[in-house]
């Protein structure tokens, strides 16, 4: 039950920081091949940027940006991107999650195809983790009532 306080410093600071946190989340995701990082860490950062907005404003403002239905769709999309990559490898004639088969449809060799398969999988993980963090936070913070808790 987070109520809005109408504090201009906190609200404008949160609005100013959010795009930077999201850009850093994408940086952590795409540099996961070359530095510490990856889908789980980037996903938590991406979820945290949205949670910051909900804390600084309130749940109504947060749900105006990502509606509940869209969030549920995002939850499932991440898992589908992950298992869809595995299924694509299966269709192309290899084993489940054997990314070297992706070289048949990408203009690279089997080693680079495995690297690109890792990237596709990490994007799926990032989407799921970010959406689940937001969904668990909204459910727990308002005891499941979302914007009705403010009335």
């Amino acid at each position: 039950m987070i109520r809005r306080h109408e504090d201009i410093i906190i609200e404008s600071l949160a609005r100013f920081l959010t795009p930077f946190i999201q850009a850093f989340a994408l940086y952590v995701l795409f540099l996961g091949h070359y530095s510490p990082g990856g889908g789980f860490q980037g996903g938590v950062l991406m979820g945290a940027s949205f949670i910051l907005l909900v804390i600084a404003y309130d749940i109504i403002e947060g749900k105006r940006r990502i509606t509940e239905k869209f969030n549920i769709v995002l939850n499932a999309t991440g898992v589908m991107v992950f298992s869809g990559t595995g299924l694509l490898c299966l269709i192309l004639g290899g084993e489940f999650l054997d990314y070297s088969q992706l070289a048949a449809i990408l203009p690279v060799g089997p080693e680079e195809a495995r690297g690109l398969g890792i990237l596709a999988v990490e994007i799926g993980v990032e989407i799921t983790v970010a959406a689940i963090m937001v969904s668990i936070f909204l459910d727990l913070a308002s005891a499941g009532e979302h914007e009705e808790a403010l009335k």
């Binding site: 990856g38 789980f40 983790v129 689940i132 668990i136 459910d139 727990l140 005891a143 499941g144």
Partner: peptide
């Protein structure tokens, strides 16, 4: 352990949800 940390967060969330239902 990277995956174990994520499972830790998930179990913590479900446990808190169960606690809220018990309190209600």
């Amino acid at each position: 352990m990277l995956t174990a940390i994520v499972v830790m967060v998930a179990t913590f969330g479900v446990a808190l949800a169960l606690l809220i239902m018990i309190f209600k």
